[in-house]
Amino acid sequence: MDYHNKLVLAPMVRVGTLPFRLLAAEYGADITYGEEIIDHRLVKCERRLNEILGTIDFVVKGTKEVVFRTCCAEKNRVVFQMGTADAIRALSAAQIVCKDVAALDINMGCPKSFSLSGGMGAALLSKPELIHDVLLILTTLRRNLDTTITCKIRLLDSSQETVELARRIEKTGVSALAVHGRKVKDRPRDPAKWNEIADIVASLSIPVIANGDAFEYEDFERMKDATGASSVMIARGALWNASIFSAKGKLPWDAVKKEYVRKCILWDNDIKSTKYTVKEMIIHHSCLELAEGKAVNKSDTYKDLA
């Protein structure tokens, strides 16, 4: 996987499923991250070929619950992001999915409660004694898998601390490092600290993927110029209008929204996930209390939603 000069779809919980990844790629995303999947869930799964859809499904054994779905069309660009706090379990989980994705990413920056409560995500960076676990997870995966390994972090309390962590991560042999330019305590409305991402870039030889506050296509180059990063990752800007990846300019969000729902029907996406994503789109552009938002909330089937 080449991480230079790429436009990257960020991992987003309940959003980064197959239809949304394919939508972003259709508009120009070079690399697409799936939503974070916890290792505990993945080790309970088995790989199944879905001949009806033409997909590869990772399904909880003995059930029809699809934990992760992919297809051949995205094999060379999809990154499986995993939440973990244990090297051995991480390896067991990674071995299940690694041959069907382009890369594996370890999430070390998620501030959401489900990740923190399990000692994963940003919790791995919150205590100095846990940094050893971070490095052990990455080293174990690198030594035992013939797969590209990366990780994603947030900023620590000081730029010096983050740079030191990034240097230690680089020594594990990862292929790239994604950096969200906010600290765990920061909220989305707080400006991303591009200057601190630049400090990391200047200290590493591996590609750095900069994440935070890119909302227009033009922001990709601005962010690369400001940080020196190899590539740029985008989350909310893509959620609000996935055609942000298009060099030709954004399409009307209503058209993007309809194409997303069409793809969700085509790829049999979980309707709860689809409704969540559509509502997030509506909240940014309109209001859930208006007619469309109320109708989406009441939708029980794809027929209703369409």
Rank of each mutant, 00 (worst) to 15 (best):
K279Q: 11
I88R: 14
A210V: 09
V43H: 07
A29I: 03
S113D: 03
K303V: 15
L288S: 05
M233A: 13
A90Y: 07
R167M: 01
V101S: 06
E280Y: 03
A166K: 04
T277P: 06
A93M: 06
A198H: 07
D57I: 07
H284S: 10
E26H: 14
G34M: 02
V79I: 09
Y33W: 07
G237Y: 08
Y276R: 09
L124I: 01
E164Q: 03
R236K: 11
C264A: 13
N241L: 10
V59R: 05
E216K: 09
M223D: 12
A93P: 00
V15M: 12
S286P: 02
V232Q: 04
T17V: 08
A226Y: 05
N241Q: 10
I137T: 00
G109I: 03
T172G: 05
G249F: 11
A242V: 12
K279V: 07
A202V: 08
G249Q: 10
K193Y: 11
R222T: 09
G181F: 09
I38M: 06
V256D: 13
G83H: 04
R154D: 09
E218Q: 15
T148R: 10
D57W: 07
L156T: 10
D57Q: 10
L91K: 02
V59M: 09
Y33L: 02
K99M: 07
S175C: 03
V67N: 05
D190E: 14
R21C: 11
S159R: 11
R168M: 09
H284V: 07
D270K: 12
P191R: 08
Y33V: 01
Q81Y: 00
L138Y: 01
V278Y: 06
V208A: 02
G119R: 00
N195Q: 14
S231M: 06
C287Q: 13
H285A: 05
G237I: 02
K298W: 10
S246C: 14
N107W: 10
R182P: 02
K258I: 14
V232S: 08
C151D: 15
T55Q: 12
I88L: 12
D254M: 15
D254W: 15
R168F: 00
D190M: 11
M82Q: 05
V60W: 10
K44D: 10
K61P: 04
E129N: 05
T84M: 01
D30Y: 05
A238Y: 07
K183G: 08
V134A: 07
R189C: 13
L23R: 01
E74K: 03
C110M: 06
